[in-house]
């Protein structure tokens, strides 16, 4: 049963991710990416990270995908963009993809094939525990993230707002 849930969830994740990459229509790509995010949230629940799962759904599937949709709609989709197909671009893409492949291969070498079983739940991923850790041990990253928010807000306003003269 555990194995079945894990395998079907993983299959859905990989298929939707592949559909996102290979789809020719940007809207279909975005929608399948949303689906992919939901299945990844399912993986988080399988790993007993409940708070992370619901945050993932709210932030990624909800908020970030709105931004993705907006970016797609900001582009002019009437004209097909001419793709860059120079020799240097192809070589660079080949080297980049090859390096990623090597990294994946190296990580695959060190893994051992096992069966999936649900990890024991000790309340690690529940919101109380995450909150306690966040506000005691990881206080500095939390406060720094507010600076990150501040810079993102200022950057967005600066880029998107016309200065009045």
């Amino acid at each position: 049963m555990n194995q079945l849930i894990f395998i079907s969830l993983s299959t859905l994740t990989i298929v939707s991710a592949l559909f996102m990459v290979f789809s020719r229509k940007p809207m279909y790509s975005v929608l399948s990416l949303i689906f992919c995010f939901f299945t990844v949230a399912g993986h988080y629940i399988l790993l007993n990270a409940q708070f992370l799962a619901i945050t993932h759904v709210i932030v990624y599937a909800g908020a970030i995908m709105v931004l993705f949709l907006f970016v797609v709609m900001l582009l002019n989709l009437n004209t097909v963009a001419d793709q860059i197909k120079t020799m240097g671009f192809r070589v660079a893409a080949m080297i980049g993809a090859g390096m990623l492949f090597l990294v994946l291969l190296a990580s695959l070498k060190s893994t051992t094939l096992g069966t999936f079983s649900f990890p024991e739940d000790n309340g690690m991923g529940m919101v109380e525990h995450v909150g306690m850790r966040l506000f005691t041990d990881y206080l500095l990253p939390f406060e720094i993230s507010s600076i990150l928010f501040l810079s993102a807000m200022i950057g967005a306003v600066l880029l998107a707002k016309k200065e009045k003269r």
Binding site: A63, V66, L67, F70, L74, M153, V157, A160
Partner: peptide
């Protein structure tokens, strides 16, 4: 887009 990103 600006409104959306501020919402996020």
């Amino acid at each position: 887009f600006l409104t959306a990103i501020l919402f996020v």
